[in-house]
Design a protein around this nucleic acid. Sequence first.
DNA 1: GCGGATCAC
DNA 2: TATGGTGATCCGC
Length: 502
Amino acid sequence: MSGVNTTFLGGHATKSGLPEARDRTQIDKIIQEASKGSKFYAFQQRREQRIAEKVAALQIKKTQLSTGYSKAEQETRKWLADAESRRILERTYLHIDMDAFFAAVEVLRRPELATVPMAVGGESMLSTSNYVARTFGVVAAMPGYIARKLCPHLIIIPPDYTAYRAAGAKVHEVLRSYDPNMSSFSLDEASLDITDYLARSSATPEEVTEELRGRVLRASNLTCSAGVGCSRQLAKIGSNVNKPNGQFILPPDPEKILEFLKKQPVKRINGIGKVTAKILEDLLKVVTCADIISQATWIRLLFSEIQSEFLLLSALGMGSAFGDGDGSERKSMSVERTFKKIDALSDMQVVLKKLCKRLAEDLLEEEWAGKTVSIKMKTAAFDTLTRAVTLENPVSTDEEIYKHASKLLSKNKPPDLRLLGVRLSGLTTDAPRYRCLDDFAHEPVERPSCPVCTQSIDAHPDDTLRINEHIDKCLVPQSNLVPQSKKPRRTLDAFFNKSGPL
DNA sequence: GCGGATCAC
DNA sequence: TATGGTGATCCGC
Ligand SMILES: Nc1ccn([C@H]2C[C@H](O)[C@@H](COP(=O)(O)OP(=O)(O)OP(=O)(O)O)O2)c(=O)n1
Ligand SMILES: [Mg+2]
């Protein structure tokens, strides 16, 4: 860390080894100067202070535990050897990650944007940036107006989720032909088990991956990067190695795997973010995955069993738990919005009511009810509070949700707010329970309607597969150069959720 | 079960 | 002028 008083939370990290139009310390300095004095900056400082205290507490714990170290050391080596003996090398996973996804979709419509610095988002927040902008230090989750200070010529494009969804659907279609059970975590990222595909083919993993990326490119006009390895985790880490528009194949060989991981910063592990990385470094000087193994005893002494098992297995490339992404049922549903600071309870109630209405609509769409109502409040100083109540019976209507949410709000009203949110958890399906089967038999099933063409779709309302197919078909013609349609846009953006008026 | 934190995208 | 939204998980009560 060099001269400038740079903060680990404030520094928007560049992605990987990109060439930089500016020096890293220069970038940090500009960001710092742009945010200094803001409420957000003060909030970050407080957070860093808390984390420093947490590290200090762990340091004390470490000195107190030092007597038991040598005994623990033996156990740890045994544990590691045992884990290693269980390594599975027989399956092959492919992780695919689209390059600068939202930005790349925008380039399809406006090819001239390919060569200039560009980001998707707004003045207050960017979702992503293209690779030209990244050389200036402009990255996702950075406010647009700060990005402009780093890169005065930056072009900022407002997001168009409809187009991203259409592009994602095309990609998914290709991927499913390699693994029908493919699980996608988002529109732009997916994990495939290609063991069976490889067994049926005579091609090498390299060739299959090249072919897959070629098919994705032809189907969507978008480039992607891919990683292949014998665990989903390794494949994912690999997908970043030769990004953008590249691929990396890690052979199923324990020595090669450990050699590969040795070079990887712990931050690359899915689940280790800025805070955990900082704690590991400050407390144990752990920076790479190899460091996790060499400090394994301390990690097991200092962290919970769940946490240390996760860290050690990850550092061996044997991380198991990884994106149930697609398959599992949702556990909660929520809506939240940021707005200009408000202080009156009545203003807060107005917002809260709208949020409840919106949540009730979303719940109805998937027929959920739930018995825990939570509200989330963020003060003008960025401090977040949540309050929850669990009810006897599940609720799902906006009136019922609002009744409890507003009670939570008035009981806990902070002096001011910049965000409010409502969440329902403890979900149960809200299938109509008070009618006998006969009613259903005679009732004409109402056809769902397509948010794009507004025609009714010839499918049962529960048949989401068929419905999505229809919507995807409707979306295809819009995805390229066609001017924005007027009506459907709002509806589908709402479907995608995120931002927008309530 | 509650509330704060952390994380991914 | 201005620092997002959704969903999940874990820890310590
Ligand atoms: N904090 C974030 C991170 C990402 N995204 C959105 C925009 C991205 O385009 C998309 C995919 O995220 P990635 O992390 O894969 O980033 P990109 O695909 O944009 O770039 P890369 O080429 O590094 O994968 O998710 C977002 O809205 N907010
Ligand atoms: Mg991507």
